[in-house]
C-alpha cells in the first residue's frame, strides 16, 4: 500500500476537523448532528469523488485507492463523532476527577466535592438532556417519541444478542458506568 494513500486519508480528516473547529469557534450551529455529518461525511466524499477528475492525481481515478482513502477518513471521523458528545456535555465522573486532581496531594472530602461539582447544575443539565428527540415533555412528565421507541427496541435487541439487559435505574450500580 502506497504511503501516499495513508497521508491523503489523514489529510482529508485533518482538513475536515479544522473546518469543524473553525465553524464551532465562530458559532455553534443549531442542528449540530446534521452539520457534523455534512462536514465529516458528505462534503469529503464529494471532494474525494470529484478529485479523480483533477489533473495530476491519476492514482485517485482508481476505485480501490478512493475506497482506501475514504475508509481511513470515515473510521477517524466516526471515532471523533463518538467522542464529541463527551466534550459537549459535562461528564460528572470526569469533572469529579479534575476537581480531586486540582486538590492533590491532600484530596477532597465528600462535602467538598459536592460543593464544587454543583449537583443542581448536573441535575438541571440532566433534565435538559432528557428533552431530546427520543423523549418529549408532556405536561409534568415525559413520554417516548416514535424515534425513542425505535432506539430502545434496537438497543434491547443489540444487548439481548450480547446476553445482556438494559441496565435500569433500579439496578443502577457503581461498576456499571464508565463515564
Amino acid at each position: 500500500m502506497s504511503p501516499v494513500l495513508l497521508l491523503y486519508g489523514l489529510t482529508v480528516f485533518v482538513i475536515c476537523l479544522c473546518i469543524h473547529l473553525l465553524l464551532w469557534r465562530i458559532r455553534h450551529p443549531g442542528n449540530e448532528v446534521l452539520v457534523l455529518l455534512l462536514i465529516f461525511f458528505i462534503m469529503p466524499l464529494l471532494v474525494i469523488c470529484f478529485s479523480r477528475f483533477l489533473y495530476g492525481v491519476e492514482f485517485l481515478s482508481h476505485p480501490v485507492n478512493l475506497a482506501t482513502i475514504s475508509l481511513l477518513h470515515m473510521a477517524l471521523s466516526s471515532a471523533y463523532i463518538a467522542t464529541y458528545p463527551a466534550a459537549k456535555a459535562t461528564s460528572p465522573t470526569l469533572k469529579i476527577l479534575l476537581i480531586v486532581a486540582s486538590a492533590m496531594p491532600n484530596g477532597l472530602t465528600r462535602a467538598e466535592i459536592v460543593k464544587h461539582v454543583d449537583v443542581p447544575e448536573l441535575f438541571s443539565n440532566y433534565l435538559k438532556d432528557l428533552e431530546c428527540s427520543l423523549i418529549a415533555k408532556e405536561g409534568d412528565g415525559f413520554v417516548l417519541t416514535w424515534k425513542g421507541r425505535l432506539t430502545v427496541s434496537f438497543f434491547i435487541l443489540f444487548r439481548r444478542m450480547l446476553g445482556l439487559q438494559i441496565p435500569t435505574v433500579d439496578v443502577l450500580s457503581p461498576h456499571k458506568g464508565l463515564l
Binding site: D129, L130, F142, G148, V152, I166
Partner: peptide, 20 residues
C-alpha cells in the same frame, strides 16, 4: 447502551408509558 441516561430513561418510559 450501558451508561446513557437518555437510553436508560427511554427504556423506563417504554416500560411505564409515562413518567412524572
Amino acid at each position: 447502551s450501558e451508561t446513557s441516561r437518555r437510553i436508560r430513561t427511554a427504556y423506563e418510559l417504554e416500560k411505564a408509558g409515562h413518567l412524572h
